[in-house]
């Protein structure tokens, strides 16, 4: 019989995979926007936060801007008094993200066509801070519980049915049910995105814009429409990421920092590949968890995951600067 330590190693590996999926959910939003418009969207983490705040706000019947309304009119209103079903709240939150995409295109991107990528990047920094403040003003800054009915906690069935594997010292595999749901959702999401991109007219237009803006424009594809569509999809992905991460630790302003977890994934998987975001997430998730389990916690005092993820990405970057699946850019004089 294999030792309990071996199975605990396997447990860490499996949890690394699941954590990697959670990272990939965030990285996907970055990839979608970068692929279609060449913009590194600094605001992607804040979009996840804003989407989650909006979802919880609708679900709980919270009055938007209530603090502001009360301060101006001397009222004392906070809630409408209803509680929306999760599905309806998700649809409304998605609608808000679509409106947001239109507004971003109309008030920001439209004015920055043909600008340098660094200008567009800086615009998204401004957008991120604006959205953070706007979200605070709209929904308040207190911690909010997000519950759309996805169960969480160790899965009993898996735990009980695997406990026999490693003898008395092994308690069965621990897998968080929420992470299992996240994996299924990520598979559906990626399949949907790939299908949309490969088999629909709009998807082909998106790919055409991604390949060559000028050529796409010359055959009559509207760049502005494509940007709106891409930001809508990125908003949807942000909503999914916000739901999964918000369910884990509540919806609060540090939720936007999940973007930090997506950066090594992007460095590793490439900025232009949807499969790259998934594979990159899995490698980073497994890599950081296994390193912490085998070396970090026993020999280095722990807390190695943050820097190890970046170091791992850096190693890949040295040997493959475009990332695992990214497109190699060759500019000829």
């Amino acid at each position: 019989m294999l030792s309990a330590d071996f199975f605990y190693g396997m447990e860490v590996f499996l949890n690394g995979l699941m954590t990697g999926v959670m990272y990939s959910l965030v990285a996907l939003g970055f990839v979608l926007i970068f692929k279609a418009s060449g913009i590194f969207n600094y605001a992607q983490g804040v979009m996840a936060l804003f989407a989650a705040l909006t979802l919880v706000g609708f679900q709980n019947g919270q009055v938007p801007f209530s603090h502001l309304i009360n301060a101006i009119f001397g009222t004392d209103i906070h809630h409408f008094g209803w509680h929306l079903p999760a599905f309806l709240a998700i649809l409304l939150a998605l609608l808000v993200m679509i409106i947001f995409a239109f507004l971003v295109e109309k008030f920001v991107l439209k004015h920055l066509v043909n600008q340098e990528p660094i200008i567009l990047f800086m615009a998204t920094i401004g957008l991120a801070y604006f959205m953070e403040g706007f979200g605070d003003l709209m929904w308040g800054s207190n911690v909010k519980k997000l519950d759309i009915g996805i169960p969480q906690g160790g899965n009993f069935w898996i735990e009980e049915n695997t406990a026999f594997l490693g003898g008395e010292d092994f308690y069965g595999f621990y897998l968080d049910t929420l992470d299992i749901y996240a994996t299924v959702i990520a598979i559906i999401l990626v399949s949907g995105l790939v299908t949309f991109s490969q088999y629909t007219k709009t998807g082909r237009a998106l790919r055409a814009v991604a390949d060559d803006h000028q050529a796409a424009l010359s055959v009559g594809i509207s760049l502005r429409t494509i940007w709106v569509i891409v930001w809508c999809i990125a908003g949807f992905v942000a909503l999914v990421a916000g739901i999964m991460w918000g369910s884990k630790s509540g919806v609060q302003f540090s939720l936007s920092l999940i973007a930090l977890k997506a950066l090594p994934v992007l460095m590793l998987g490439g900025f232009t590949s949807i499969p790259g975001a998934i594979i990159g997430g899995l490698i980073i998730g497994v890599g950081e968890k296994m390193f912490e389990f085998l070396i970090g916690a026993p020999f280095l005092g722990g807390a190695t995951e943050n820097w190890f993820a970046y170091m791992l990405a850096l190693v890949f970057l040295v040997f493959r600067p475009q990332g695992l699946f990214g497109e190699k850019i060759i500019e000829r004089v």
Partner: peptide
């Protein structure tokens, strides 16, 4: 036993798997 968690602390799976073990 000491289990550090890096800023901001949104991801603590390793620490709690260690506690479970």
């Amino acid at each position: 036993s000491l289990l550090p968690v890096d800023h901001p602390g949104q991801e603590q799976k390793s620490q709690w798997l260690q506690i479970r073990r």
